[in-house]
Amino acid sequence: MESVEAKADPRFAWFERASFWIAMASCVLLLLFTLAEIAARPLGIQVYVGGEYNSMLMGWLIFFALPVVTRARQHLVVDFFNAMLGHRGRAVISWLGALIMVIYVAALLYFCAKLTLQSWNNNIRTQGILRTPVVWPQLGMVLGLLLMWISSVIVLLGETRDLFRAADRGARP
């Protein structure tokens, strides 16, 4: 895990920051719900939010942070062999990675949106104790993926620019 500069990063668009705020709020709530559950136990009160709400918050935490992770290009990469390629080779691979990311995220977005629509149509509820309609947390998943897709498109545009620049440099003697 690398240490991350948390200062407001000018690279991020407003929607990426807003989305990350939701992720942060989800994480704080996750912590508070868990603590509430521990505190309530000696009092003989069972706060059921733990299991179910926490796993939903976990979903929001992940999906709403993905736009920033994508934009900051923090996705894990095996870069050992890549480093042996030349400057242009790396630029091409990097562009290719960004392109495939756009397609892949679009596919995920499509499948997850379809699942969410199904949950809505069938009024699907969680299997656990609270029997919450799953469509709400799933909407978070879809929204997060949508924003992530936009971020990945922005990254791809940047990569395309870099690729042309690399080509220019290569063309010059």
Partner: peptide, 26 residues
């Protein structure tokens, strides 16, 4: 089979066991 992909992602994201990961890192 692609219809299963949504289930696969959703069920992975909401694993109750994994909720300890962000908290331990924090």
């Amino acid at each position: 089979y692609l219809r299963g992909v949504g289930h696969s992602i959703w069920n992975g994201a909401t694993s109750e066991v994994l909720t300890s990961v962000p908290l331990f890192i924090l």
